[in-house]
């Protein structure tokens, strides 16, 4: 159990190297080893989506991935969205449309939306629903999240 493996990866454009136990989950590595605590853990069994991060541009559940699987990868977490004090258009849209209440599920959700909007600047309603559909939010009832996605699309278009 105590043997470790050296891994390296880029997170939000910064290079990290560390020794990890092979059993360490990716989310525990991000939160515990790197101190990037913006990624949250809601269920630890891959259902709720709170722990979603981008792995080589793809949304993945970091609670059911091992840190060693991210060796050599480029990762993006919620800490990589804003530029300094300037919120990313998705974050700004969530703020203006009240797409969050407690904010616990929000980082993961925003990264799935980031993945969607990187793929297409004009997603269909079904694509939007299917993106949000991979996440559980217990506070908002999703309506304001849908509105936030539409506003984010508009903001990114006029950027």
């Amino acid at each position: 159990m105590t043997s470790t493996r050296r891994i390296g990866m880029t997170v939000n454009g910064e290079r990290y190297e560390a020794d990890v136990e092979p059993r360490t989950t990716l989310v525990d590595f991000l939160r515990g080893t790197l101190g990037l605590t913006g990624t949250h853990v809601g269920c630890e069994h891959g259902v709720c989506g709170a722990c979603t991060v981008l792995w080589n541009g793809k949304a993945v559940r970091s609670c059911i991935m091992l840190a060693v699987q991210a060796d050599g990868a480029e990762l993006k977490t919620v800490e990589g969205l804003a530029r300094g004090a300037t919120l990313h258009p998705i974050q700004q849209a969530f703020l203006e449309k009240r797409g969050l209440q407690c904010g616990f599920c929000t980082p993961g959700l925003m990264l799935s939306i980031d993945e969607l909007l990187a793929r297409t600047s004009a997603p269909t309603d079904t694509e939007i629903t299917d993106t949000i559909g991979g996440h559980l939010c217990r506070c908002t009832g999703y309506q304001a999240i849908v509105e936030a996605v539409h506003l984010a699309i508009e903001k990114l278009r006029t950027k």
Partner: peptide, 11 residues
């Protein structure tokens, strides 16, 4: 919201 949206709120 700004702190929540940027992952800075300390849970």
């Amino acid at each position: 919201d700004p702190a929540l949206l940027t992952g800075r709120t300390q849970f």
